[in-house]
Amino acid sequence: MKIAITAQNPSPENQVDPHFGRAAWLMIYDQEKNEWESIDNSAGVNAARGAGIQAAQKVVDHKAEALITGAIGPNAFKSLSAAGVKIYHGATGTVEDALQAYLEGQLREATTNDAKGGV
């Protein structure tokens, strides 16, 4: 399975980006291959509106089945839920820390009530 994690820089040793739609990068971890792929999300950072929807499209296009981030907004939540992507929020530290926390079951899955946006 593939897992997407928001990142401030394109490397797993870097910090998790607390935003989803406006995250600088999306890191995609492929569990089977144990490989990382980095996706530039500068379009989202600079988007006037609809950044969450745009970023969700990237997550879906890269076939990630779970997303790990700091906080999620309502449109991103609606997009990812419709695509069946599981959303885990409240991640902090490095991208690797966040992945570890997720694998150990320490991250909470977001619900509609959490999807208020903001950090």
Binding site: A47, R49, Q57, V60, N75, K78, A82
Partner: peptide
């Protein structure tokens, strides 16, 4: 150009307010 449509493999989600 306004992110009002999200194309998923089996559905299209619309965001009317966008």
């Amino acid at each position: 150009q306004f992110n009002a449509l999200l194309c998923l493999p089996e559905k299209v989600v619309t965001f009317p307010e966008m």
